[in-house]
Design a protein around this nucleic acid. Structure first.
Length: 491
RNA sequence: CGGGGCGUAGCGCAGCCCGGUUAGCGCACCUGGUUUGGGACCAGGGGGUCGCAGGUUCGAAUCCUGCCGCCCCGACCA
């Protein structure tokens, strides 16, 4: 059989790129650094959106929408925030074009220069807090729990499909609270929501942690994150939740009257996940034959490929399929019957493997004689024959099994690729040869973090929340360390 | 912005060093037929400003000059 993809082991980046394109998820657009998400890829995003949105609603949040443009002056209100994002902003300077002198094209009309330039949002804290100022007067207006689904633009130097594009889709939650305690609880709650979504829906095991000073969000007091391990041993930040303290309330003068009638600054959080999650999904589960999708996110959960010579064969198969289709429908399974006569069965098999469809049913005359179907699992490549009488029941079980199996497989992989080290030599050795997550004691200083980054190209991914609290000595300086932290090369 | 590489059919490439038939190959596409239990085969066919502009030459995809665009590596990063 012709291999559709390059080998994962030989060239991971090439494999990834080819897979994204061949599985019909996305492609590079003609616009610098931007991505076209194709219908198949977008339907995975839609499933993610639905799953996450339900969880946001269940935790009391509502959706709203704020402007794409941010007046330049807003950006500079919060000092850390502007410093963090200034280098990657797209700026709107004019509102009209005119034909150029040589008549060959158009130029921004110098007469239509904006008095104040607009920034295309890299994130919405500033516009949203400038609005919250108007919305919040009393403790009765709090907590304010709002989420928005939007696109943002960050002018990154180098881009990669799904993992880092100039424009990307995400959700950003922005909440306001009366007390610090409530805001911290909210940030932690949403981190748990992300964790649950990653593990239960995406079958992606993650580690919860806190970012170091140098890695945290520009404008936050604390950044919580979930970190996942990809199959090439690199870490991927899969979601973040920030405790903002009163930073944005101060910058935008957002105050409320408490029960005693005293004015106080509001406490805030923000949290987000992006289309990068699709990249995580791909890199955590897929293989050299293509995508492996967790059943809970697969746009098509079960595909049926008929095998036939004559029209009579096909008619008989269709009869069986229409019964199956009804059973699947009542059981909430998304099903596709591919009876195109323009492609041959072998071609279809390969195509659905490439697209990560969890279960494939092949039905031919031989099967009908025996009242059975051939069922193939995408995750294990296992093939089995199942009686048509209990096919839909077994499919439900199999889908659950696949969901669990790919989670456990990813979890095993992470365990195999998480290494405890005690010395700096060991840390460097592991990072250079094996990769993966490396647990090591760290003295808490940015200097040590920088040194490790320079020596190994690995960054401090997070200080795990689940620390087991064992004290020790920093692998670089020998100073005391409260707990081990995670270092890894990252995307 | 620094260091490498590339631009030839929708996609992937060969040809260029050493100028000379009608610019070629694989995939894809179209037509007809045979096929269909793991990416079918045969026959025929369509499709090109050789990135752009200038120069050298009897003659340029090929040599020279300038420009444009893209990709990879680094700085940046969800």
């Amino acid at each position: 059989m012709a291999k559709a993809l390059p080998s994962r082991k030989e060239n991971y980046s090439l494999w990834y790129n080819e897979l994204v394109k061949k599985a019909d998820l996305a492609e590079n657009s003609d616009v610098r650094g931007c991505m076209v998400i194709k219908p198949y890829g977008y339907s995975i995003w839609e499933k993610m959106q639905r799953g996450l949105d339900d969880m946001f609603k269940a935790t009391g949040h509502v959706n709203a929408y704020f402007p794409l443009f941010i007046p330049k002056s807003y950006m500079s209100r919060e000092a850390d925030h502007v410093e963090g994002f200034a280098k990657e902003c797209a700026i709107v300077t004019h509102y009209r074009l005119k034909t150029s002198e040589d008549g060959k094209g158009v130029i921004p009309d110098p007469e239509a220069k904006l008095e104040e330039e607009l920034i295309v949002r890299p994130t919405s804290e500033t516009v949203i807090w400038s609005t919250y100022r108007k919305w919040i007067q009393s403790y009765r207006d709090l907590p304010l729990l709002i989420n928005q689904w939007a696109n943002v633009v960050r002018w990154e130097m180098r881009t990669r499909l799904f993992l880092r594009t100039t424009e990307f889709l995400w959700q950003e939650g922005h909440t306001a609270h009366a007390t610090s305690k409530e805001a911290v609880e909210e940030a932690e709650r949403m981190l748990n929501v992300y964790t649950q979504f990653a593990e239960q829906t995406m079958a992606l095991p993650v580690i919860q942690g806190i970012k170091s000073e140098s890695e945290k969000f520009a404008g936050a007091i604390d950044t919580y994150c979930i970190e996942a391990l990809m199959q090439d041993g690199k870490a991927l930040q899969a979601g973040t939740s920030h405790y903002l303290g009163q930073n944005f309330a101060k910058a935008f003068d957002v105050k409320f009257a408490n029960k005693e009638g005293k004015e106080e600054l509001v406490w805030g959080t923000s949290w987000g996940v992006t289309t990068r999650l699709i990249g995580a999904l791909i890199m955590a589960h897929s293989d050299d034959d293509g995508l492996v999708l967790p059943p809970k996110l697969a746009p098509i959960q079960v595909v049926c490929v008929p095998i036939y010579r004559s029209e009579e064969d096909l008619a008989k198969i269709k009869e069986v399929v229409s019964k199956l289709e009804k059973e699947f429908l009542t059981k909430g399974i998304s099903f596709k019957f591919d009876d195109r006569d323009t492609e041959r069965p072998g071609w279809k098999f390969a195509e659905y493997e490439l697209k990560g469809v969890p279960l494939r049913i092949a039905l031919g005359p031989r099967d009908l004689e025996k009242n059975q179907a051939e069922v193939a699992r995408r995750d294990t490549k296992e093939k089995m024959f199942i009686s048509l009488d209990r096919l839909s029941d077994d499919v439900v079980k199999l889908l659950e099994e696949i969901q669990n199996n790919i989670y456990n497989r990813a979890l095993d992989f992470r365990k195999q690729n998480t290494h405890d080290v005690e010395t700096y030599d060991e840390l460097k050795e592991v990072l250079n040869t094996k990769g993966g997550f490396v647990l090591a004691h760290w003295d808490g200083t940015a200097e040590t973090e920088d040194k490790i980054k320079n020596d190994t190209k690995a960054s401090l991914r997070c200080i795990p929340l689940d620390s087991n609290g064992k004290e020790g000595k920093c692998v670089v300086t020998g100073k005391t360390s409260k707990q081990k932290v995670i270092f890894a090369k990252a995307y």
